[in-house]
Design a protein around this nucleic acid. Structure first.
Lengths: 190, 190, 190, 190
DNA sequence: GATGAATGAGTGTTCATTCAT
DNA sequence: CATGAATGAACACTCATTCAT
């Protein structure tokens, strides 16, 4: 028998992400994805049970890669503010270098497909950061407010600012990233 | 007759928003929208030149209604912080009471359809708030950073917190809204 | 609005019957049926909710037409044997003149589609004949055996003999039909 | 190894019959048959040149097995009526014990696939019965009518009565089989 | 203005079959 | 012999849109 050609599966995932970024979820048909990946539409069904499976799997893959990158080099022994700053920079780096993946994830999570994903499963990867935040609360470094609120001020802003749809004009240089972090820090610090 | 017309058009818009919220952009076909609005698919083309026009017009309508509501009762003579707080509360009120409209707008603005909208036209409605922010900068009440950064900390958080996809567990009572505003204010204040 | 074109629906039904007779149930695709009927495949869905609906509706239509024809001119006042003979002749006439319809019905009733049809509903049309049989039993003209057995000897044979798949060589002239009826009668008579 | 082969081929045939009985000819795809037989779709093409070959071969196999069973223990020295009765009983036994095979054959012979089978070849197996019928005619025990007519009254009824699609309610116990045979005999006897 | 009929083009998916291993 | 990967062609069906009324 023929061996499964991982090159093909990679091509399918890439094509999916690219196409969704180019023409959006709505217009991204299986046929177009297949064409972009230079495979037959039928081949797609060798790797995924259906279109939904393809889109969801792609999302999960991206999210996993993202959480790996965001938590990379996080050093618990550093001062609290520095840890957050490293995470902030990691986020900015990832989003800058993977605009396509990030934009796919944004579209996906705003679509009804996202209901099909076990979100809490994905969020588990970020538990280390949650533990760090909790330590900050316990040590009275940051405000004792619900995690969701902290998240909105310390994790989302860098993503929003990197999102070209939100920030059309502002170029995100290192200085701007730094400035934004100062605001985030002021928001949460005690 | 005018009344009849408006009724039908309203029904179409409502049906569009409801359907997109129920089954998403991807699955919302003209036929289904028409069925939900209790009109013929052809009737839709009496009011809109095509599907895109319908979706875009619906978005613009929502955005206009939203900007009206958010700027309602904004009193320039109040102290700076109170103005922002009023706007913050207006946002929270609108999103709470119009989850459907808000969610439609979110989906829309994350789709490539949004490229078809003259965003700067829509943003004009928020110029009053921008002028207020500028005054705050000039009076050295808030930090002198790019508008986009301020926006991310003072306008987006309340929307994110109201978004059920972002905040699944946190119930947004008045106290929580107040707490979140304090963080936002700490972020931007000098 | 455009008025529903009954000519089109008739064309669809005819095409369905013809095609199924030519190439069988298995190979009769919606596209092929549409092509034969000179309509777009989409048009088919104006009249029927899906392929199954088309096939089932066609079957029911045929069965209704058939029961009308078989019971035509049945005169209850005639002697018992003559009534059966008339029915027998009607059956032979119908099958001879509507080989296509008959063959479609045969294929259909041997397919799993037939499970979708409310058979007892269709059998109601034949109740007059059942009552006649019962009268024959009561009057001790024919044997007192279950209806199904009588049916197999007095109703099925003429259909089997008219079925070209069963009887490839035998030409069914009037004499043969008469001969066969004599056997049927001998089978059931007391 | 021979044993292994036969196992696989048997599995394929069984799967084919079962699947056709479960979901019908129309929906029985090669992939599904292979899955049911626990082999690869490709393996199927080791034993059969294509799908048609598989279906036809399966039919022929069934027909051969059937003719063997029906003619089993037929004793030419018995009285004429007893021979027919034995055959009748054999038919009933076979159909009862092999409903799946029988139903497959019914579906097949009502499909256009049946045109691909050399029917006269299959009918050769039944020549012994034809010779017996001819002897009955010659000895003036049964009516001198075309074979097809005799067949319809002496061979088909037991099959029809055993067919669950024809006889939904009637349970075929020994008494019923006996009763039906009496009608068949009355039909053909002189 | 308002409609349901009608459709070519497209949808996601499965098909029978082949091929390299 | 036996296989799972791979596919072009076909599948049933829906799409956005137009048209006659």
């Amino acid at each position: 028998m023929r061996i499964k050609d991982t090159h093909k599966q990679d091509a399918i995932i890439s094509a999916t992400v690219e196409l969704v970024n180019e023409i959006g979820f709505v217009s991204s048909s299986v046929a177009k994805i297949a064409k972009k990946a230079n495979v037959s539409p039928a081949t797609l069904y060798v790797y995924y049970t259906n279109k939904e499976d393809l889109l969801v799997s792609t999302y999960i893959e991206i999210k996993k890669k993202m959480s790996d990158e965001l938590l990379k080099n996080i050093d618990n022994t550093k001062p609290f503010r520095d840890i957050l700053k490293d995470f902030w920079n990691n986020t900015f780096d990832f989003v800058s270098k993977n605009k396509g993946l990030f934009q796919y994830a944004e579209q996906f999570s705003n679509s009804p497909y996202s209901d099909l994903v076990n979100q809490s499963e994905l969020e588990k990867h970020f538990e280390p950061m949650m533990r760090i935040l909790q330590k900050g609360i316990d040590q009275k470094i940051i405000k004792d407010v619900p995690f969701e609120i902290l998240t909105v001020f310390i994790f989302y802003p860098v993503m929003l600012l990197s999102n070209s749809k939100v920030c059309k004009k502002l170029t995100m240089d290192n200085e701007t990233v730094e400035t934004a972090f100062n605001l985030a820090w002021d928001a949460i610090k005690l």
